[in-house]
């Protein structure tokens, strides 16, 4: 093969440079199974206890705690339940009404960030703005956010919202678990404190699972035999009990138990393979074709000499 030292070094250099350049930024992080911070807190929501209408104190407490505008409609206005509501930049939690076991027993379900153990938003964020804290909250750091909104696409619960109307400082907005003001000091979030019916229980997540199991065991007729959030998408800090099937109170039951970061993990780990194999493959191809051309040229030359 007609490959001199200079050429070889050039190719070797190109290959190494390609590999080095491209492998530098991309590392598949979190390749081992994450079992969660041991003492992380959680909330158990017993939807069978929530009265919804004439209350919604959690919504108002949340607004006050997070300096958000007071919800438009007062607690006594039942029309607020006519439509399914979702979270918005000015409202981190909403109560929705769903048909219950009978006409006069609707189920009210609170919606807010589930604070996943392995959050999709955190794995999707290209600047690492989302963090799962040891206390259990999924926090967001607006100071690095570029506003691509991939977190909103990734979140299976449709929780993150965006300040589309801000030209200069748009932020992703979502429930914070009152991390800075309450959770950090081991206190329950504002919504939990405000609830007059003790719908929500604040505590260590693993204790809450036991509480939930006991509740179901003691009242098998009252609850569906499932703790929503115990295993969904790998487990969430907020968990739910319900008297009716979860898909009838607006919660998706088709999300599976795979932690969302794993959905892209395999793909990301294939990247280094491409970086290693492609340059050598294509440079070999190049050398092969170069050699072919050289042989053709030499034979051409010989023919000319012969005919001369």
């Amino acid at each position: 093969m007609n490959l001199n030292r200079r050429d070889f070094l050039k190719f070797a250099g190109a290959t190494t440079a390609t590999a080095a350049l491209t492998s530098l930024p991309i590392k598949a992080e979190a390749t081992e199974h994450f079992t969660g911070h041991p003492d992380r807190k959680g909330i158990l929501v017993d939807t069978s206890l929530c009265i919804g209408h004439n209350c919604r104190r959690c919504e108002f407490a949340c607004a006050k705690e997070n300096y958000l505008p007071t919800p438009d409609k007062p607690p006594e206005d039942a029309s607020v339940f006519d439509q399914r509501r979702r979270t918005h930049p000015d409202q981190f939690t909403v109560i929705n009404r769903f048909p219950g076991r009978s006409e006069d027993m609707p189920v009210y379900a609170k919606k807010q960030c589930m604070h996943c153990d392995e959050p999709a938003c955190a794995s999707a964020c290209l600047v690492g703005a989302f963090k799962k804290t040891p206390e259990g909250a999924v926090t967001y750091d607006a100071s690095v956010c570029i506003g691509c909104r991939y977190c909103m696409v990734a979140c299976p619960f449709d929780i993150p919202t965006y300040e589309y109307n801000s030209a200069l400082h748009p932020r992703v907005r979502k429930c914070t678990f009152c991390f800075e003001t309450k959770l950090k000091e081991g206190k329950a979030p504002a919504c939990v404190e405000a609830c007059p019916r003790e719908v929500m229980t604040f505590g260590k997540r693993e204790d809450l699972i036991k509480v939930a199991r006991q509740k179901i065991a003691r009242n098998p007729d009252k609850y569906v035999d499932h703790i929503y959030g115990e295993h969904e998408v790998g487990g969430t800090s907020w968990m739910y009990l319900s008297p009716v099937p979860f898909d009838s109170i607006g919660m998706r039951t088709d999300l599976g138990t795979t932690p969302y970061p794993e959905l892209t993990r395999n793909y990301l780990s294939a990247a280094p393979l491409v970086m290693a194999i492609w340059p050598s493959f294509f440079l070999t191809l190049y050398l092969f074709n170069k050699r072919k051309d050289q042989i053709a040229a030499e034979e051409n030359g010989k023919h000319k000499e012969e005919s001369a």
Binding site: P25, I26, A28, A122, A124, C125, L126, V127, G128
Partner: peptide, 11 residues
């Protein structure tokens, strides 16, 4: 600000 677990980061 490196979000190395993100596909968007690779993009």
């Amino acid at each position: 600000a490196f979000g190395t677990s993100s596909v968007m980061f690779e993009v």
